[in-house]
Design a binder for these strands. Structure first.
Length: 117
DNA sequence: CTAATGACAAACT
DNA sequence: CAGTTTGCCATTA
């Protein structure tokens, strides 16, 4: 399975994991922003794939990663579809209709907060 | 090797 | 302005 991933792929995945882990509590970011921070502006899909792979790793708050619209597009990939929303609500993020409210306020842009080295 | 799909996003009609 | 199409990168069939 994923043990045979090339170092290159692992690097990209690991970058995503690092960024996701650095997301402050009560904040959230988008796939595209992470992809942009990693250099692949259009690699948002790969970020989503990385999230899918992150299930095997501990300490990856994938629930803090949503699409550009603040929609919980990946809720169905958790243990239960409600896990993601409950996790976000537990951090003070209000969700309605599977969409984050005031996403502009809680949005956390890695390229802006972490900035490029 | 070609085609299709995907936890997305931007451009185009 | 809303809906449709293309682009990106990797995995699967």
């Amino acid at each position: 399975m994923l043990e045979n991933l090339n170092a290159k792929n692992k690097d990209f995945f690991e970058q995503v994991y690092q960024v996701v882990k650095l997301i402050p509590k009560g904040r959230a970011t988008s796939y595209g922003s992470i992809a942009n921070y990693l250099g692949s502006k259009r690699g948002a899909r790969m970020v989503g794939w990385a999230m899918n792979a992150s299930h095997q790793l501990p300490g990856i708050p994938a629930h803090r990663v949503v699409n550009r619209n603040g929609l919980l597009s990946g809720k169905m990939h958790f243990s239960t579809p409600e896990t993601m929303q409950l996790a976000l609500e537990a951090e003070g993020i209000y969700i309605q209709n599977d969409q984050i409210q005031d996403f502009d306020k809680i949005f956390w842009d890695p390229s802006k907060e972490l900035k490029l080295p």
